[in-house]
Computed example of a mutant assay.
Amino acid sequence: MPVTLVLILVLAALWETTLLVSDLIRGRGVTNEPSQLLASGALVWLGNNLAFGLLYWLMDGGGPTARLRLVVPVDLAFTQQLDPDLKPGWRPVFLDYLHLGFTNATAFSPTDVMPLTLRAKYTMLVQATVALALFGLIVARAVNAFT
Rank of each mutant, 00 (worst) to 15 (best):
R69A: 14
R28W: 04
D85L: 12
S35Q: 10
N48P: 01
L118M: 10
A42M: 10
R91S: 13
L82P: 00
L76E: 00
N104K: 00
P84M: 06
Y122C: 12
T31F: 06
L134T: 01
L76V: 07
N144A: 13
M1Y: 06
G101V: 05
A140P: 10
V113E: 06
T129H: 07
F146P: 12
L11S: 12
A12G: 14
L7R: 12
D85H: 07
L11F: 09
V143S: 06
L5N: 14
A66W: 01
P92D: 14
N32Y: 00
G53V: 08
S22E: 11
V130S: 11
F94P: 03
V72N: 10
L86V: 06
T65I: 12
E16F: 07
G53S: 05
L118I: 10
S35L: 08
L5A: 15
L24D: 02
N104A: 15
Y97Q: 06
V30H: 04
G47N: 09
V139E: 10
L118D: 15
I138T: 14
V74C: 04
V139P: 00
F146I: 14
V143E: 09
V44T: 09
N32A: 13
S35R: 11
S35F: 03
L70S: 14
N48Q: 15
V113L: 04
A77Y: 02
V44C: 06
L100D: 05
V71E: 15
L118A: 12
L9E: 15
L50S: 04
T79W: 07
L76F: 13
L5G: 12
N49G: 09
L137W: 11
L9G: 03
R28S: 08
R119D: 14
L43P: 00
A12Q: 08
I8A: 14
L14T: 08
A133G: 13
W90C: 12
D23G: 02
L37C: 05
W57C: 02
V72L: 14
V10A: 05
P84D: 10
W57H: 10
T17K: 00
N104F: 07
Y97P: 00
L5S: 14
M1G: 15
L98R: 05
L116P: 01
Y56V: 02
G63A: 07
L55N: 02
V6N: 03
V139D: 03
A107Y: 03
T106Q: 08
V10Y: 06
T79F: 00
L24P: 00
G41R: 02
R141H: 06
N49A: 10
V139A: 15
R67Y: 01
G29V: 06
